[in-house]
Amino acid sequence: MALEITGIAIPSLICIFLFLWGASLFFAAAQSPQGAMAIFVVGKQWMWHLQHPEGPREINQLHIPVDVPVRLTMTSEDVIHDFFVPAFRMKMDVVPGRYTSEWFEATKPGSYHLFCAQYCGTLHSGMTGTIEVMSLTGYAQWLRENSTAESMAQMGLQLFSRLGCDTCHLSDGTGAGPALQGRFGKQVTLRDGQNRVMDGAYVRQSILDPASLPLPNYRPVMPTFRGQVSEEHILQLIAYIKSLASGERTQAP
């Protein structure tokens, strides 16, 4: 009996120790550090679309600087994928209809495997890529060479006028829709008294399903843009609306 109890107690203690250790690391990994560099990812059967906030887009390849924390905001155009970089010990599902995120900080320059780790159909095993970790100067140079005419926010601005968003969301607040300046990251109170923070997921929901977010003082006249915008477009629109909050001026070139 004493043997039995010891036999239960010792592995239990080991288990508790391992559990706490694993859990503390997990929570650390779930919380991205402030000021991490942002990258936007859209998974699609069977490729990765990645975009830097400065504008450059990549497919199945991601260039990042070394020793800088990088935060990925990810969503999927179709089925569930999973952004897995074994060398960074990071993995997160990329789920249609919502944003997930993960972060990592590469400590050695080099080229690392990127895998899709959630079975996603016929060419699942072809949905791979590389993460190119470059020195800070190398990255700056790469960014210059691949610079696009517009940043993500500017692309968002273009979309904003092309889709006619700016006819209602006037900057002075007199339009049929609320002004968006300085709103991102703030709290929004809905008609039923619910409080929501205006984050990426909120903006996405209000573009695709505006009727589900009725605001006091505004009539629910906004149509849905489902089917008219891709996930990449939405990310650009979010970048634009976010840029309005920080007060940085986004000019169409």
Partner: peptide, 16 residues
């Protein structure tokens, strides 16, 4: 199985 049950290692080893 304990490696997989532990959160931190589980994330890495999941679906491998």
């Amino acid at each position: 199985g304990l490696f997989l049950a532990s959160l931190a290692t589980g994330v890495h080893l999941h679906d491998t």
